[in-house]
Design a protein around this nucleic acid. Structure first.
Length: 809
DNA sequence: CCGAATTTAATTTTT
DNA sequence: TTAAATTCGG
């Protein structure tokens, strides 16, 4: 291809160029926030193709989200189209008509992008499995066909539930399906199979989990279905056991690139190794000729350990892949330490915060921009006041700045549940906004229903989907009928579909449900005949109409039904979009993209709306203005991280991610009390993270920093008020208190120098007795996590809260 | 078998 | 507060 008049190094700094020019062998790019890592990645791919003449089909690039993949493809397309146009027409890209630009882009798309494997681990290995899953030989004889369905979390949970309730008849109170599903997922992400889990089981409980796991795997196979974890685990096993398959993919993917390497888990790491070094120990792998593995990541932004990600994989990359003992540091590591995104104030705050972590790879992040404004901290009475304060800030900025756009703003929070209050305030003030994340589009009931029909058309063994739609819309097929059929299927060891579609079985039933079943069977036969002749979007439409789903919604005639109809129309649009993006569109492909899509993928980036999202989904994005809300102990950091230093460090990294999203201005908020689920107010104390940011970078209501704050006054007031109303507090408790406590209780306020430790029992004048589960901070900054009977753990400041220690003996 | 009414549990974070 | 699960009357 004739693209040689320019190279892809223009406008890159020294280390970025070094990364882009890397050709053979392993390279770790440690890339801090805002240091231009996506740029390095895309430019390197372009460089490989153009300068090193690498065939696009030999490149595999793994991203963390679909959105990142799409962005990379887009940027690559523009990059290459630009070079192609400029070398052919000898005039600058910007002088081209947009129709010309598009022509070049579509040329690049067909010649190059179509060949590249760019996507998430899940999407790419699902694609690989469509080729090779039938070659997989399971030790227990389990197998899958290339028409497998992909189960999302809900589907797989319903399967686990069924096993726990029906097959094993366990008490779901003792064996919570959600927790067990989670344990299974964890095992899968570590590459552990049921037999090993059973063998290493240290408790009866784990044995039971292994048993469920075992049945669950069998059920998945019987349904010809895979869960998210299988999309990675099955390829690992397949590549390990089948030399030919492994050899093929090893030869094919000569250049492997991984983005967000700090968030890879064990299974993903195995996959990389298998492909890169063909199953050999990668540190002994020598044949790097025209091959490379190129990973980009930042250990400080590792925030997915709950999904079994382990940033030590990143930290040991050089040990794993680089066998050139002499020049390790210079040859297989490049650091991008210049931040082009944030003001130096924001950056310094983030740097100081993250320095509190112990487990880190040495790295600094240097500012390239001016100081900018101070960070503003706002203390609010409760979560409603917090939301109002956010909106108030934004309105002030909006009024004072002509160039301001609502799209410049992101409001970030720790949990999805926090979005609602903010939304209410935004609605009240008529500010346009969009919530990303939360409930996935494809998780909506009506969408899942239609998708279930489509899955069934391709994969009749998929009983989870079958059960979902057998009586949706209503066909008079009730619980008892379904149970009967289900039992029969289990007994005969055949998929439920075989029974449901068996005329004999139907005839053995009474008239009412038989009619419905015949109807259903006819419908599916009719639809099945259409699969090959119609595009996915047409099939969606067809299912919606012929199943009677739409007419039922019309008949219902409520606002909710109307909304559902609109969503279904969106599904048709999604299918159309999919067809546009993929020349080789088919129903399997559409279903896979639906299963692996996330809500964040569909975010419309250039609309003039405030973006609301969790800190997790903000990773990789940037905004001129960031509002970070809910900075309170127990919320952020989450109370579940308080008893575990490494989780707390992960929360801190999450905070680091949040701070570094901001380019110009950063606003922090915390509330003094918060309603959790519409019920009781919970007192909250400011997040310890706030105290880790140097106070000279912040203006506003500094937390816990001496002086008499409003918060203290209020809490003292509450303390005395409770004591007044509860005047039998002392006398009621005194009989159970030891003498030393009897002395202590003569203090009327908080006790100075009191020491608290985990396990201590305390009595609270309002919550009753509880036990300390965690102590964090000390002296001025101390706070306690206390579990009271029948309540979620509370985070309290012992110097302010009306609590007293009880001696155990 | 269906739908309405009532109760219950749930809040990290996501491919 | 809300969604999902359970119960009960027709």
């Amino acid at each position: 291809m004739n693209l040689n008049n320019t190279n892809f190094l223009n406008g890159l700094n020294k280390n970025q160029s070094k990364a882009v020019q890397h050709f053979e062998g392993p390279l770790l790019v440690v890339a801090g926030a805002g240091s231009g890592k996506t740029r390095a990645l895309t430019h390197r791919i372009a460089h490989l193709i153009v300068e090193h003449n690498v065939d696009p089909s030999e490149i595999i690039a793994v991203t963390f989200t679909n959105k990142a993949a799409r962005e990379m493809k887009d940027r690559l397309e523009i990059l290459l189209a630009k070079r192609m146009a400029e070398s052919q027409l000898l005039k600058p890209w910007s002088s081209l008509e947009s129709i010309e630009k598009n022509e070049f882009r579509s040329k690049i798309y067909r010649q190059i992008n179509q060949e590249l494997w760019i996507g998430t681990f899940h999407a790419l290995f699902a694609k690989l499995l469509r080729y090779d899953i039938e070659k997989y030989k399971d030790k227990e004889g389990l197998s899958w066909t290339r028409f497998f369905s992909i189960y999302d979390e809900k589907d797989s949970l319903s399967l686990v539930k069924e096993i726990i309730l029906q097959d094993l008849q366990l008490d779901p109170k003792r064996f919570d399906p959600k927790k067990i599903r989670w344990s299974i997922s964890n095992a899968k992400n570590k590459g552990i199979l049921p037999e090993q889990l059973e063998r290493d089981a240290e408790s009866q409980r784990i044995k039971v989990i292994a048993q469920v796991y075992n049945l669950y795997r069998k059920a998945l196979s019987a349904n010809n279905s895979l869960d998210f974890d299988d999309l990675l685990l099955i390829p690992v096993q397949l590549l390990k056991q089948n030399h030919q398959v492994r050899e093929y993919w090893h030869q094919r993917f000569k250049h492997v690139l991984v983005d967000e390497y700090q968030d890879t888990n064990w299974t993903q790491y195995e996959l990389i190794k298998l492909i890169v070094s063909n199953g050999k120990n990668p540190s002994e792998f020598k044949n790097w000729e025209k091959r490379s593995v190129f990973v980009v990541g930042d250990a400080d932004q590792s925030i997915y350990s709950f999904r079994a990600a382990d940033f030590r994989i990143l930290m040991s990359f050089q040990n794993d892949f680089d066998n050139s003992t002499d020049s390790k540091v210079s040859n297989s590591l490049v650091k991008l330490e210049e931040n082009y995104r944030s003001t130096s104030t924001i950056l310094e705050a983030a740097n100081c915060l993250i320095e509190n972590n112990k487990e880190r790879l040495d790295k600094v992040l240097r500012a390239t921009r001016g100081k900018g404004e101070l960070i503003k901290l706002t203390k609010c009475d409760d979560e409603i006041a917090e939301a109002e304060a956010v909106v108030h800030r934004l309105r002030i900025i909006n009024a004072g700045d002509e160039t301001f756009s609502w799209g410049d703003v992101a409001v970030l929070y720790r949990t999805n549940a926090q979005s609602r209050v903010i939304e209410e305030s935004l609605v009240r003030w008529n500010i346009p906004y969009i919530v990303v994340g939360g409930l996935r589009f494809y998780d909506r009931r009506e969408i899942k229903d239609i998708i279930a029909y489509l899955k069934l058309l391709i994969n009749p063994s998929d009983s989870v989907s079958l059960l979902r739609i057998l009586n949706v819309p209503k066909r008079g097929i009730g619980k008892t009928t379904i149970q009967k059929f289900n039992d029969a299927a289990a007994e005969l060891g055949v998929p439920l579909w075989e029974i449901v579609s068996d005329p004999e079985a139907i005839r053995s039933l009474g008239g009412r449900s038989a009619k419905g079943l015949l109807e259903f069977q006819e419908l599916l036969t009719y639809l099945k005949n259409k699969v090959d002749q119609f595009a996915p979007s047409e099939l969606v439409q067809l299912v919606m109409e012929k199943s009677g789903y739409i007419s039922e919604l019309i008949a219902t005639a409520t606002d909710e039904a109307e909304e559902r109809r609109r969503n279904l129309q969106e599904l048709v649009n999604a299918a159309l979009q999919y067809q546009e993006d993929n020349e080789t569109a088919n129903l399997e492909g559409f279903l896979a993209s639906a299963a692996l899509a996330s809500d964040a993928d569909n975010k419309d980036t250039n609309s003039d709306r405030v973006t609301l999202m969790t800190l997790h989904s903000s990773k990789g994005l940037e905004f001129p203005i960031v509002c970070l809300v809910g900075l309170e102990q127990g919320l952020f950091p989450s109370y579940r991280s308080l008893d575990d230093p490494s989780s707390l460090e992960e929360e801190r990294r999450l905070c680091y991610v949040g701070l570094t999203r901001a380019k110009e201005r950063l606003f922090l908020f915390h509330a003094l009390e918060r309603r959790l689920w519409g019920g009781m107010r919970e007192p909250s104390i400011a997040s310890n993270f706030l105290t880790e940011i140097p106070s000279d970078l912040i203006e506003g209501d500094l937390p816990l920093s001496g002086g008499t704050s409003l918060r203290r006054e209020r809490n003292f007031e509450r303390l005395t008020r409770i004591d007044r109303h509860n005047n039998n507090f002392d006398s009621r408790q005194s009989s159970t208190l030891s003498p030393s406590n009897a002395v202590r209780k003569t203090f009327s306020g908080p006790m100075p120098g009191q020491s608290w430790s985990i396990g201590d029992k305390v009595v609270h004048s309002f919550f009753g007795t509880g036990q300390i589960t965690h102590v964090f901070g000390k002296e001025e900054k101390i706070s306690l996590a206390i579990k009271f009977d029948g309540m979620s753990p509370k985070i309290l400041d012992p110097r302010l809260a009306p609590i007293k220690l009880i001696k155990d003996n």
